[in-house]
Design a protein around this nucleic acid. Structure first.
Lengths: 195, 195
DNA sequence: TGTACATCAGTGAACGCGCGTTCACTGATGTAC
DNA sequence: TGTACATCAGTGAACGCGCGTTCACTGATGTAC
């Protein structure tokens, strides 16, 4: 396991709040958002079943916090990957796609918590698409088309991440992102009147 | 004989096997594959908690059967939509994409059971991609490229279906499939050396 | 045609389990004096 | 510097719950005679 190991403390854990979130992420990664139990998280932290209630009002509250954290991390990584769309939109889109796959792979717990049905990332689409959309528009692709393209790249990344997680991809997801994004961009360009 | 609607019988249900599967599909659609309980399915059929065990050895057996059925239905619809790639691959791909979205929308229970982590559709990729791949190859697109394209369209459809299910799509999924598939095809064509 | 019987899809009570949550408690820690 | 105390993060026993599963049973149905 990837434990950020701490010396075993006798009574006071010291950072149980954080430790519970990390344990939860690990459990969700291992068994899915529904296979996660508060007791297991407590056990993983070497703490009694009731201890978590000193830090979270609820199991739901822990899950919500996990999703919130996941959303932050996710957005930060995608934002960094996009890098303002510099030096060129095509490259930036590729970086975003790769970052998407990498996040799903490296932080499966947060990723799954984030996309769990019922998670409150219903306000994510703007956050995820409009920065890309605006940057693209600035580069010269029409507003509507930019949004479309961003959503398509998003869906492609999301679909590839899901299929990879299910073990259904017979080839590297990165390759499919690379050629897929290139084809979407080339295809879109061919649609443009002014070339 | 396979009518889902029968007059309420006193003791013998008559078609509990089928009824349980339909109830399970409805429950999975409503609450997800993990929110599904055997007792609820029994209740939905107006039957005692132990009755299902006369038809399925296990809860897991019911789930597996649901996934198996879902796989059949899914494959049948995708296959019909592909229609041998006639009269032209581009159109056929669009039909497949639409069928994918329609299935996820109209049969959410089967769809979710099918893609539930741990479902045994690990042997699906060949079934789903190679018919398309072979047809494409016959039309003139290289073997490797055809597989790539099929996977990209698959991932795009899957991603759009997921995002739509989560309420994250600010526009019609069909539009995004239409222009997305068109762009992927056009982009691929532009890569080809011989046109 | 009516009766006896085998079959087997249903019942309902019971079980063990793990979970989420509560509660009164306890003991480690920091701070005021 | 040592002592008293408030704080509060932990304990562990207890609860109620719904679930999956079992078991001995029961009664509707079809069939042999």
């Amino acid at each position: 396991m990837d434990l950020p190991e701490k010396p075993r403390r006798a009574y006071h854990h010291g950072n149980l709040h954080q430790a519970l979130l990390e344990a939860a992420a690990a459990l969700v990664a291992e068994r899915g958002p529904e296979g996660f139990s508060l007791l297991d998280a407590a056990r993983a932290c070497g703490v009694s079943a009731s201890a978590p209630y000193k830090h979270f009002t609820d199991k739901a509250a822990l899950m919500a916090e996990l999703a919130r954290l996941g959303g932050q991390k996710f957005q930060a990584r995608l934002g960094a990957a996009w890098g303002g769309g510099q030096p060129e939109a095509g490259q930036a889109f590729l970086r975003v796609g790769h970052a998407y796959l990498a996040f799903a792979r490296e932080e499966p717990g947060y990723y799954l918590a984030l996309f769990r049905p019922g998670s409150m990332m219903a306000d994510m689409p703007d956050q995820a698409t409009s920065p890309m959309g605006r940057a693209l528009a600035a580069i010269g692709i029409g507003q509507g088309k930019a949004g479309e393209l961003a959503l398509q790249i998003w869906a492609l990344s999301h679909g590839l991440a899901s299929l990879e997680r299910s073990g259904l991809l017979p080839m590297r997801a990165e390759t499919l992102i690379d050629t897929g994004v290139a084809r979407l961009l080339r295809g879109l360009k061919a649609e443009q009147p002014g070339g």
